[in-house]
Amino acid sequence: MLQTPSQTVGPYFAYGLTPEQYLYDFKSLVGNQLVNPIDQPDAITISGNVIDGQGQVITDAMIEVWDAQNKLFGRFGTGTDPKSRFIFHTIKPGSIDGQAPHLSVIVFMRGQLIHSYTRLYFSDEDELNEKDVVLNAVPQERRQTLIAPKNATGYEFNIYMQGEQETVFFEV
């Protein structure tokens, strides 16, 4: 059988997919707290922008993150933060399947007829990152696009759809 073709998530996904975040009266499936930061002293914040080919911040993207090691999943739209960031509260995963710690990231937005897969790796895992089979499948000059620098509260991960810093997207 043939796969059902993908179509864009469009500009109006918020009340269907991220209703509580955008203050619609419908219960969200999941939000951006993969863990409750109050209960988890080792919680980290992951935040970033999604940026288009002219360097403009995209305010209607939806980001999903999946931590297979801890079985944690989150979803957040870039339309509510004053800086149009996506923000996730989670814990840093450990290694899984012989790979360096990472989160799977899925990017949806108006203007994407089919979603994009990328990964977030952590800047303080140099040793494991150097051995990681996926990072090593990426041309070295583009590897940094997948490695989120550490900041005061967690990690910053900006997703560039195009341009010199274009994020690496995967055929998964």
């Binding site: 288009d52 080919g53 002219q54 403009q56 995209i58 937005m109 108006r110 203007g111 994407q112 994009s116 089979v133 996926v134 499948a137 990426v138 583009r142 759809m161 195009q162 274009e166 994020t167 690496v168 997207f169 995967f170 055929e171 998964v172």
Partner: peptide, 12 residues
Amino acid sequence: VLRAPTKPLVVI
């Protein structure tokens, strides 16, 4: 036009 990745996808 400004949102489509331009580089080939990396197969993993």
